[in-house]
Nucleic acid binder design. Structure first.
Lengths: 164, 164
DNA sequence: GGCCAGCTACTCGGATAGAAGCTGTCCGAGTTCAGGTGG
DNA sequence: CCACCTGAACTCGGACAGCTTCTATCCGAGTAGCTGGCC
């Protein structure tokens, strides 16, 4: 039960885009070289972000991606769900309906009308996970990063990115 | 990013065992018929539970599994981790170390000594998920089930199980 | 009658195979910009 | 000098292969309890 590493890449790409002036764009090629990951595969992750409306890509030379919303309006959950989908991690197959000693009449699973108690617990845990991710925006991340990384290194990186 | 369905089966099996008198055992065969799932594959899930010390299996006829701890001492997290393992859902590969414009000297990833800020956020969300699962024990589940399911149905199921 | 061998039912573990998803690569189609060419 | 053409750079999307994980099955080894036969 792992998240794809595309999720990691997508998060890092969004972080990089958030650190740039809002009108600048970065190409897949630049982003892939910066992160040292295969370009064509990273492209899939960026396409997912684009379809989810988080980034906006343009064609042609000088084309590339930029964030399509202000940094405070993009959360970790947005990015994770863009790549992974919105399904719950726990998939209830209603096996309680297979119970051989119950009538199993026309309405097998919704006997009490509510979902299985086990699934309810698992889904609540999923929701807690999502709440945590929803609480962190790219803006929050940028503030943390400013504390983590020396300003000089950060400047070097942005210079390198803009020179590509 | 799904949990295996073995997790669902393991949870249901533990719930069934929790509903029984503590000295009774259920065989893999009985459990698989009760839940309508393949016996040999369910056996793998039960083996995981056994290795984690949650259930205790005995050999021979009249053998089978029973919980090895009181119901209030077995949490959902115990069961999920027994089947899925204890790894985080987010696997940080330290791609920030691949940054081509930084020295990449002898110590590439632990530049600031701390893990990547993005990984920290993801791991906190994981921890929130685990906290939720840790908060629900089999005892809690049994109380919920007593409200969900008519006593008559519950009795029918336990009778069927014990008659096998 | 008592003891022992064999049988049965069960767990455990390994081996195996198919299905599905993840990872990674390749290529063609469409789009935009820049630079060059011709009027 | 200006309009148009061409080529380069880029995104997008589909197709494809290799690998890992999940799902499922099968079988042999080991163990415990029961049954039946032998002394």
């Amino acid at each position: 039960m792992f998240l794809k590493n595309q999720v990691e890449w997508a998060l890092h790409c969004c972080a990089v885009l958030a650190a740039l002036p809002t009108d600048k764009r970065l190409s897949t090629k630049t982003l892939s070289e910066f992160h040292g990951v295969p370009k064509e595969y990273l492209s899939k992750a960026l396409q997912s972000l684009s379809q989810a409306g988080l980034v906006d890509g343009t064609l042609g030379p000088k084309g590339g991606y930029r964030l399509s919303r202000p940094v405070q309006d993009i959360t970790f959950l947005d990015i994770v769900e863009a790549v992974e989908g919105r399904k719950n991690t726990f998939n209830c197959t209603e096996i309680r309906g297979n119970n051989p000693c119950l009538p199993s009449d026309d309405s097998p699973p919704p006997a009490p009308g509510k979902p299985c108690a086990i699934a309810r617990v698992m889904w609540e845990a999923d929701e807690a996970w999502r709440d945590k991710l929803r609480a962190v925006s790219l803006e929050t991340l940028m503030i943390t990063l400013k504390d983590d990384i020396p300003a000089e290194e950060l400047q070097k990186s942005t210079d390198w990115l803009l020179s590509q």
